[in-house]
Structures are given as C-alpha cells and as structure tokens.
Simulated scan of single mutants.
Amino acid sequence: MNYSLIRRFRMCWVPDVEGKDGLAGELSHPGKMPDMPVRYVGWLSRFAGRAAGAGQGGGRAASAGPGTGPWGLEGGRGDNVDLLILLSGPEPQRTLLERRLLDQMADYSGRVVLVRGLPAGAPATGVSATLPEGPTGASPRVNLPQRVRVYDHLPADELEELIRGAGQIICRSGYSTVMDLVRLGRRAIMVPTPGQTEQEYLGNYLAARGWAVCIDQKGFSLMDALAAAKGEWGEQGAGEGREMDIPGVRQLPDPAAGEGLLRQAVAEVLAMVRRELDAAREPEADREPGVSREP
C-alpha cells in the first residue's frame, strides 16, 4: 500500500543516510525500492546539532544563561536531572505508560522531569507538583514528590538542554525521536508504542546496535529498565565532563551533513519543475516531434 501511495509522486525523499549506517534499517533501506528517483536527505531534527565532543567522549552544550531552563538551574542546563521521561503518541497508550511510570516513582529517588507530550495545558515554563488532568480515563490528579516535575510540553531549546544533560532518558521509539536523540549524541531506554510495528522494529534494531535499550510497555518496570540500561552502557551520572560516548554513532556521518543533502534534493526538484515549466511554455513549432505538452 505504501508503494501505491508513493507512485503518485515524482520523487521519494528518505530522512536517513544512504548505506549501512542508516538509522532505520530496512524501513529506509528496503530490498525493493520504489520505481522512481529516491534521495536520502539525511536526518531531520528540530535541534541545533551535537555539541563539540558530544558522542565523542564528553562535552556539554554552552551555558544558556543563569536562572533559565525548566529547573531554574545555574547555566540553564539539564544536568541536575537524573531521569528525563518523554511521552508521546496516540491515546490511550500514552496515558497508560504515563500512569505506569508515575505509579513507580516512589521506588526511584532521583530527580525526574516528565514531559507529557500534550499540546495544551499548563504553560511551558510552569512547574507542577501534581499531574494535571489528562484525557478521559486518566487519573484526575496524582500527588507527586517535589523531586518530580511535570510539563505538558516544553520549547525546543529547553527540551534540548534536558536531553543533553539528563542522566537517563525514557521515550518512545518513534523515528522523529530517534533522529533528535542521535542529533544530540544520546542513547535512551525506548518503550515502543504497542501495536505500532515500525516502533517495535526501530527499538529492537537500535538496541541490537547498542544505541538503545528496548523494553516492552507490558509489565514495564522502571527500576528494571534503569538496571538494564546501566548494565548495557554503564553508569551515566550527571556532572560536568561526563561522557556521552555512543559506540557506532561516532562513525556515522555528521548530522549537519543532512542539511546539505536536503538542499541538493530541493535543488533537484526545483530544476525538474523549471524544466517542465519551460517545456510547457515552448512554442509548438519549436517542439521535437512526438513531445507532448503534458508535464
């Protein structure tokens, strides 16, 4: 069915890199390609890119200024957050995972930021000691420890600081999330959305390459997940100079290279459109025999 939809277009852009270093495995490098031009345009991310040294043995983002960031940290960094939880995806699975995680917060003593992935609700800079009301069926209000902060959503710059600095990250294995994490040189504990086969494939594919720990939502245990991550890549504490060394990612093309690939693809499409417009405007007498006016 996907190929029948792709055939309606003249070119297929794939947000990945060409060759064996791709992030999406067979999803972006299938055995049978569409019967049209296919261009790999690199990874697309809302974030600025890896800091100098990130993913290569250390380094942090530059200071965003004192008193900024969700926790009001000195320098605005997220490096006093032990666990960052990024929720997203369709209901009711988003709420089911949220509830499961919050129910287990009593077992975890670290500082937590939970970003609910909701488009409306509390202001992005607001801090709440209770969980705001969610969709129908969610727990109406859940009392949380002061060490747990909940946001419906956050601006990209604040979210980037948290991703860079958090000790551990729990998130879905959607491809947009994957591209954002790799852009910043971070691994994560990934919990695929049940029933979304592409997320299940991506989570297991990335785990097999050492870039993630993939755990099913059913029976999810926060403490077991954190222990599995620690066993996979060691302790990731918060502190200046901590390494974010991701085996394999150092050999991947720089994410910024994707910007050049995307520009090339755009230029190619524009050139194609110009050729077709020129052909449509060409006088009939100047046309080669057998050349149709149809684009």
Results as ranks from 00 to 15, higher is better:
Leu5Arg: 13
Pro15Thr: 05
Lys20Tyr: 09
Leu23Asp: 01
Asp35Trp: 10
Asp35Thr: 08
Tyr40Ser: 06
Gly42Asn: 07
Trp43Ser: 08
Trp43Asp: 06
Ala48Gly: 10
Ala48Cys: 11
Pro66Asn: 15
Gly75Trp: 02
Asn80Phe: 01
Leu84Asp: 05
Ile85Leu: 03
Gly89Lys: 02
Leu97Asn: 01
Arg100His: 06
Tyr108Gln: 01
Val112Arg: 01
Leu114Gln: 11
Gly121Arg: 05
Val127Pro: 01
Thr130Glu: 14
Thr130Lys: 09
Leu131Asn: 04
Leu131Gln: 10
Glu133Tyr: 08
Gly134Met: 08
Val148Arg: 03
Ala156Ser: 15
Ala156Arg: 12
Asp157Thr: 13
Glu158Phe: 00
Glu158Ile: 03
Ile163Trp: 03
Val182Asp: 00
Val182Tyr: 03
Arg187Cys: 12
Thr197Pro: 07
Glu198Asn: 08
Glu200Pro: 05
Glu200Gly: 13
Tyr201Ile: 05
Gly203Arg: 05
Ala212His: 05
Met223His: 10
Asp224Ala: 15
Ala229Gln: 09
Arg242Trp: 13
Asp245Met: 12
Asp245Pro: 11
Ile246Cys: 15
Pro247Asp: 10
Gln251Pro: 07
Asp254Thr: 06
Asp254Glu: 15
Ala257Ser: 14
Gln264His: 13
Ala265Glu: 14
Val269His: 14
Ala271Asn: 13
Arg275Met: 07
Arg281His: 09
Asp286Gln: 13
Asp286Phe: 07
Ser292Tyr: 00
Arg293Met: 08
